[in-house]
Design a protein around this nucleic acid. Structure first.
Length: 262
DNA sequence: GTTGAGCGTT
């Protein structure tokens, strides 16, 4: 039935979580239910999906009631072809609260107090989110992004595969100690160009003379010149950029206002 | 219509 994912976790106490990887993007909990239910009592099946698109992320979590059943399912379903794709079943290493689990068994919530955030490997996550965000945020060449991402992925994978006993405690706090939550990634990113804009504006104003230095290139700019002498493009541009040319002047009007008052 | 390493929701 489709009673999976409708509500939150029913009772994750004394339950063994199994991570199912490599599943198709259209595979749902209902599709995996029969497969796992055949080998044991499935308490709940959860498939992380994108909050925006709602598409499956490609993996699912199956919770068993007993470890023996879970182990059996892992042994039997690991490598099984589901929906035309070979799925990977293994014990979940991390719990819902980003905490380590003991052999896939979810203990009580005391894990939260375990603190220390053992921090897992600084691996990247939320591929979909990043991709989606990138598309919306920057309207640059997508092909480049795609290639770049792919290239990085391959390198990362190879790198990880090559040296396994290398990254173990590099600097997990670096990635985790920044308050980088899963939700923050989506919500954050609202007003931040303001600071930069101001900084830039100031920099330009301050370096007004300096800015003129590298201007010669403008003459030989690749893009055509609209009207080099048909009007005053320079003035126009300057006007828009600096509405108040004397705004940066230290002695502008504060003294004046004060002077007028006796 | 696409993608493919990974560790999760109220």
């Amino acid at each position: 039935m489709s009673h999976f994912g409708r509500t939150g976790p029913p009772d994750i106490t004394d339950t063994y979580s199994l991570l199912v990887l490599n599943i198709t993007f259209r595979t749902t909990a209902d599709d995996l239910f029969p497969y796992f239910d055949k080998y044991g009592k499935v308490v709940d099946i959860f498939i992380p999906r994108n909050r925006r698109t709602g598409d499956s992320r490609g993996f699912a979590f199956v919770r068993y009631k007993y470890a023996e059943e879970a182990q059996k399912a892992v042994d039997r379903l690991d490598g099984k072809v589901v929906d035309g794709r070979e799925i990977t079943v293994q014990f979940a290493k991390y719990g819902p609260n980003a905490e380590r689990i003991d052999k896939g068994r979810i203990s009580e919530s005391f894990s939260k107090s375990s603190y220390r955030s053992r921090s897992r490997s600084p691996r990247r996550r939320y591929r979909d989110d990043y991709r989606d965000r990138d598309y919306k945020r920057r309207s640059r060449s997508r092909s480049f992004d795609r290639h770049d991402r792919d290239r990085y992925r391959g390198r990362d994978r190879d790198y990880r595969r090559r040296s396994r006993s290398r990254s173990r405690s590099d600097s997990p706090d670096y990635y985790r100690g920044r308050g980088r939550g899963s939700y923050d990634d989506e919500h954050r990113g609202r007003s931040r160009s303001r600071s930069r804009s101001q900084s830039r504006s100031r920099s330009m104003d301050s370096a007004s003379p300096a800015r003129r230095s590298p201007t010669p290139r403008r003459s030989a700019s690749p893009h055509r010149s609209p009207s080099p002498r048909s009007g005053s493009p320079d003035r126009h541009s300057g006007d828009r950029r600096s509405p108040t040319p004397h705004g940066v002047s230290p002695a502008d009007r504060p003294a004046d206002s004060r002077s007028q008052s006796p």
